[in-house]
């Protein structure tokens, strides 16, 4: 190593130091800590009691909420991710067309995703109110009887999904950026071959966009598996625990019941589940995604 190289190395370390230190102190260290306390009985007040694998054993065999939470979280994810992704992708395509005032539309559709979630949640709670909510009033014009939306066992998940679609501006804006990078000559080639709009969409747009759709979907999936705000603000896990999402259960165990060790064990199980689910998604989507730069 020359002197200059050494010096560069030193400066390099110095510049990445804040990021590394931040990661260590605020992410890695708490993770290690939570892993350790997941083997203890700790109420945050008195000292730790080492109980080995008891927390994990109780979770899998003797927890009244665990399996239900896994179930409702997966149901929410399986319904929410495709709906939000398809909707925001189609919306991005619409907003990519050349119409007057397209930038206004882009702004309008993007705004919901940058609003604070609490404000959005309160707004939709008004919309979904069974007695004086906007939605039931609107349905009333078509003589559709009032629905219970957030307090109905059957409708609560669809209600949350509709709200998530409305807030899907983040995925939309990424898709929109991607769409503008799809080269025009490919569309021209389809035209030359006599293809129409649907052909262009299906044989050019979708394959070219597949990495972006995939990215959006994976981020969305990881996010939705950690759904918390919906349950905390809008439903309190109800009705009848149909939205008792995994993270909400962890929160209840940690802070409502004061079982920090148990909650840490739950959190580690979620971590493992997320890793497995993400790996599975990567595996099954391998043949569905087209990377232009990929050498096979």
């Amino acid at each position: 190593m020359t002197k200059i190289e050494k010096k560069n190395l030193a400066w390099g370390y110095l510049f990445i130091a804040p990021a590394i230190i931040g990661l260590t102190l605020f992410i890695v260290a708490p993770m290690i800590f939570s892993f350790i306390i997941s083997f203890t009985d700790w109420d945050m007040i008195t000292s730790f009691k080492w109980i080995g694998l008891t927390n994990y054993q109780t979770i899998f065999t003797d927890d009244i909420d665990f399996w239900n939470s896994i179930k409702v979280t997966f149901i929410f994810a399986i319904v929410q991710v495709p709906c939000v992704q398809i909707f925001s992708f189609l919306l991005a395509n619409l907003l990519n067309s050349k119409v007057k005032g397209v930038s206004i539309f882009r702004t309008l559709f993007y705004i919901p995703s940058i609003l604070p979630f609490v404000a959005v949640a309160i707004l939709w709670m008004f919309i979904y109110n069974p007695d004086f909510g906007l939605l039931n009033q609107f349905l009333g014009f078509f003589h559709i009887p009032p629905q219970d939306w957030l307090v109905s066992n059957k409708l609560v998940i669809p209600s949350l999904v509709i709200m998530a679609m409305w807030m899907g501006g983040g995925a939309m804006i990424i898709s929109l950026a991607g769409l503008q990078g799809v080269p025009n000559y490919l569309y021209e080639a389809v035209e030359m071959d006599g293809g129409g709009r649907i052909h262009k969409f299906w044989y050019v747009t979708v394959p070219m966009m597949s990495p972006i759709i995939f990215f959006n979907a994976v981020m969305n999936l990881i996010g939705v598996m950690q759904a918390f705000n919906e349950a905390y603000i809008m439903t309190q896990g109800g009705p009848d625990k149909h939205t008792y999402f995994y993270l909400y259960m962890i929160y209840q165990a940690a802070f409502k019941e004061g079982h920090m060790g148990y909650a840490s064990a739950l959190a580690w199980i979620l971590f493992v589940i997320l890793v497995i689910v993400t790996l599975l998604v990567f595996r099954f989507s391998r043949n569905l995604i087209y990377y232009e730069a990929e050498v096979k």
């Binding site: 050494k6 030193a10 370390y13 130091a17 230190i21």
Partner: peptide
């Protein structure tokens, strides 16, 4: 020099 870098890093950690 190597140690000096470590020293800088260490002091930053301490400040944090």
């Amino acid at each position: 020099k190597k140690y000096r870098i470590l020293l800088v890093l260490f002091s930053i950690v301490l400040i944090f």
